[in-house]
Design a protein around this nucleic acid. Structure first.
Lengths: 355, 355
DNA sequence: TTGAAAGCGCTAACAT
DNA sequence: ATGTTAGCGCTTTCAA
């Protein structure tokens, strides 16, 4: 808590024999300083390695030199894949590193119990804008406050209750509808769904898309055909087992977000089924033209990174004051009947993730 | 730049009909406030969602509520593996998330050209202590300034020129010596080395260990047997090719840090050699009881994560004021003749990395 | 072109 | 137990 004394503009001013305001002018690149004075001050600054105190600066007006990176939900409840995180981190470094900005991460995300305010760093004015990484809880009440604060922000997810939210995401509802319609067209009538993100917006969208497709086909909704799962292997395995035990179920939409073919196969096996033979599967994936289950009859690509990338570009513009509008980016999923092959990405060094 | 007005302790004070100092006492958990007053103030704070302004707080004394995470070298020059980064990030979140601290990342690392001051965030007083992630450049002149500033810090690497540096790392010199001695004992006389981190401390240590082992055995040092490589495949492949083209070279120490068996085999093939048959290899790895090249006759494990973990524990104590001593942690490598098998880690969700 | 003074939000030191 | 005052380092405003 005790202060480690360091250089101030007054120290620099004394050394350079000018006023503090002149030093301030120099470090902010303001005009109204003669070339000679500017050089003198710059030299002293370099000599002693002076850097202005961020806290003091932040008191007069909000400086946009630090971007908050925030998890609206605990990764234990809503997992973020390492691949996506690394990718996102890489994008953030590329975008904001170039500008000389800092990234500030709040490593203390809210859980369902603690109900923490994930925007605390914004209220504390640690950063002047933030990226919300990951799905939003259906109970979220922080988002409107962020929005109304006027700070630039980008949610990588949306919220029914707050459509004006600045976001860049993928239309999961459409994805679910496309998946189910595709299976209906292939003659299936009892279609099961392995659904992730229960209690979060993407979970709700999945369900809504599923119901919409059935409704349009005039098929009544049976809640027993939809199972919420976490990404745990045993959870998925059990859910698949239970769903496929009913012989009338001839199709499955895997939107578990787990990208886990082993558990699906094993769950099916325990129900005496084989994917691609007894029943058909549509698998969701985050990679273009790839699948997690080779036996699947359909592969739905969710262009999550692509939407996030465009969102970040817009956010950067907003953050740097070039625009002042909330962001609304919603990408459509793509359904592939065939893909060129399963991609198993080999490990790569950080910052070398391909663009 | 324009200020987004938000709540201050004065606003809270007015609403709660107390003085600003009383509000300050409440938010800092100081005594000298009656239970009734405290409750009244807390209620107003919760009502409006007040959070104290970090910048203003930081002006009175240095608050330890944010940890800097800093790259002393550009990852383009000195790669950090994704696996290590994720692991480190996970450790940092576990350690400092629990305390409610923030992490501040400077995504603008220095390159050899720009010579940027990687500790700028510390001088700007964005954070009160920092972790230097990755090897230190032999030209480093920032480290002594950090050290002398009195701020807590931890370098995940050391520096000959500054032995008092607070660090947690692995003894690469010993690793090189062990590797070469092992090969000497197996009867080899001309031992080649694939060396990483040229211009950085771990590169220097590798070379020193190599020379020390030869010297002890009375074998003259031949610079042609040591090749500096980056982690690029073609670089390694070419270096192996060139080294093995000389028929007298019967052994190779792979301390390229690339963990890339394919390039070693291919480089050998082009020189008409087969690892484990024509020549023997000692491979370095960051994983215990594992290897990157099954044909290797020796596997040197560098317990980098293990040293970093202990370092972080010490750093946390220093950062939270429980101690005030620099950290000196140096782990010994281990040489295995046989390992139970090649580990190909399967992808895991972020924050679920095993402890 | 340059500088003096006031004040940002908070807390330490000192009253009451 | 509570309040007043001063001042942290900087930038804004206004004056010279």
């Amino acid at each position: 808590m005790s202060k480690v004394r360091s250089w101030t503009i007054h120290d620099i001013a004394r050394r350079a024999d000018v006023s503090a305001k002149t030093v301030s002018r120099v470090i902010n690149g303001e005009k109204g300083v003669s070339l000679l004075t500017r050089r003198k001050v710059t030299q002293v600054i370099d000599e002693v390695g002076f850097e202005p105190h961020t806290g003091a600066r932040s008191m007069r007006g909000c400086r946009r030199d630090c971007v908050g990176v925030v998890l609206p939900a605990s990764p234990e409840e809503v997992p973020l894949s390492q691949g996506f995180f690394i990718w996102l981190f890489n994008e953030l470094c590329a975008t904001f590193g170039k500008r000389g900005d800092f990234l500030c991460i709040d490593p203390h995300p809210p859980t369902r119990e603690n109900g923490r305010d994930y925007a605390r760093g914004l209220w504390q004015q640690r950063y002047a804008g933030c990226i919300l990484c990951g799905p939003l809880s259906l109970n979220d009440n922080v988002l409107p406050r962020i929005h109304n604060s006027g700070h630039p922000y980008l949610a990588l997810g949306r919220l029914d209750d707050f459509p004006e939210c600045s976001c860049a995401t993928v239309d999961y509802e459409l994805g679910a509808r496309m998946s189910v319609e595709y299976l209906l067209n292939r003659g299936h009538r009892r279609i099961a769904m392995l659904k992730a993100f229960s209690g979060y917006q993407p979970g709700l969208e999945r369900l809504r898309g599923y119901r919409a497709a059935l409704e349009q086909a005039g098929i009544p909704f049976d809640p027993a055909l939809v199972r919420s799962v976490s990404v745990s292997q045993s959870d998925i395995l059990n859910a698949v087992h239970r769903l496929l035990i009913e012989p009338d179920v001839t199709a499955l939409v895997d939107c578990s977000a787990a990208e886990d073919p082993v558990s699906i196969r094993e769950g099916a096996r325990r129900a005496g089924r084989v994917p691609g033979k007894d029943f058909e599967v549509v698998c969701w994936t985050y990679t273009d033209n790839a699948t997690v289950l080779a036996e699947a009859c359909g592969h739905l690509w969710l262009p999550v990174r692509e939407s996030a990338r465009e969102g970040l570009i817009c956010f950067e513009r907003w953050f740097s004051g070039k625009t002042s509008e909330p962001i609304h980016i919603l990408y459509r999923p793509t359904l592939y009947e065939h893909v060129s092959g399963l991609q198993v990405p080999k490990p790569k060094p950080l910052f070398s993730v391909a663009i």
